[in-house]
Design a binder for these strands. Sequence first.
DNA 1: AGAATAGTGTCTGTAAGACAGTATTTG
DNA 2: CAAATACTGTCTTACAGACACTATTCT
Lengths: 236, 236
Amino acid sequence: MSPQRRARQTVTVTADLVILTIRDHRLHVLLVERANEPFAGMPALPGGFLRGRESLDETAARELAEETGVDSAGLHLQQVGVYSHPDRDPRDPRVITCAYLAIAPDLPRPTAGSDARAARWVPVDEAEGTRLAFDHDDILRDALELARDELQFTTVATAFCAEEFTVAELRAVYEAVWGVELDAPNFHRKVVSADGFVVATGDKRPTMGGRPAALYRAGDATRLSPPMMRSRQSGA
Amino acid sequence: MSPQRRARQTVTVTADLVILTIRDHRLHVLLVERANEPFAGMPALPGGFLRGRESLDETAARELAEETGVDSAGLHLQQVGVYSHPDRDPRDPRVITCAYLAIAPDLPRPTAGSDARAARWVPVDEAEGTRLAFDHDDILRDALELARDELQFTTVATAFCAEEFTVAELRAVYEAVWGVELDAPNFHRKVVSADGFVVATGDKRPTMGGRPAALYRAGDATRLSPPMMRSRQSGA
DNA sequence: AGAATAGTGTCTGTAAGACAGTATTTG
DNA sequence: CAAATACTGTCTTACAGACACTATTCT
């Protein structure tokens, strides 16, 4: 089947994106409908081929900007892993992919995308039950596991929020991603006392019939220590 | 320079290995001397090209077995990330690599390797000060950071040990990888009480003029909860 | 005033870290 | 017995989690 068993394979490479956001208090992932073969018409993760002199990180950033309509500079983007099973894509030469996890605040335009492909936000629990093109089910599962872990140990949760946010909004991120309810008083204390997690702007935002909430910006820290919510640690 | 700016790149792919072990109470990494251009004569991480119908995980496992002379089934192997900067390798077509972290117990034969290349164990603090071929400095740094993190939150430390080991040996792993001294009594209590981390075999191993140590085997758990050593969490 | 939301105080249990002390071996 | 190593007990402090309570707004 393949040219020579011991030959160096030449392959093409894609970057596929698991773009997560929170809409209406639920975690959503951006899915597109494939326009071309293979898997035409099937839901899939957005992504595209490595071009010219790009690095894969640049490919991912470009695709992210195209899909979300937002300059990727602000958005969180990180590798999930490489998927290289020989049968994952029927095309020849072989296609391997590097999956990226992207975290976006609730974006102004719902889907957008310069592409003609229909892109839509899908609640993750619904997406997890859907058959996706290629091995995108695996990728989605791994990316979600990564995201849930990272929330514990890093400050990425702020990437789901707008530039300025309230503690309640940050708490809603954790609740949506983990699918749990957190104790508001304890969460508040923990977030504001964690060094470098959030920085108060001094402003306040009025709430619907309640005391106005203080506004915060993301702090310098990337690692959260101690981690958030000890009880949730045994996962997977 | 490159064919067409918007064309799909075809590339070749390698798997490079950061193989760590502990020798003489110090963390070591396996380095080879490059036989061919580019970077001939320079120290580098072991690795090789994706062949035939392999997945990259299989490429990495094959290379690991070749380099260590050990069937990779027993050894811990995990992706670190993809390195795809267009100038990381001068060859054409472009070469991108997927880096793997491998953790091995102190192996019977020091270096071995069916390859003709000179392979040797280098203490990591020495290797970190050495200029390596390609972007292998970056890869080594990232892999070490990953390894140090994983020790906190997972049970991989047992992968550094032989099949049966004492608590003191496991503690030596943490001390070598983290470069710290740990309190022996507290470490002991924590390890044996962490669910699924280690399982007592019932046997004992005599020590040099001391009470014999109980022997353990690695347990089922992969995640460590709560994590090891709260104080060490702020890293990077 | 009452509802709603933000934020603080306080108590309890659990676990981390320090370190004293006990157990079991060799010489 | 002394030295060496393994392991256990206990004390202190810190923090997670529960939840009562105060603060500030809107209607």
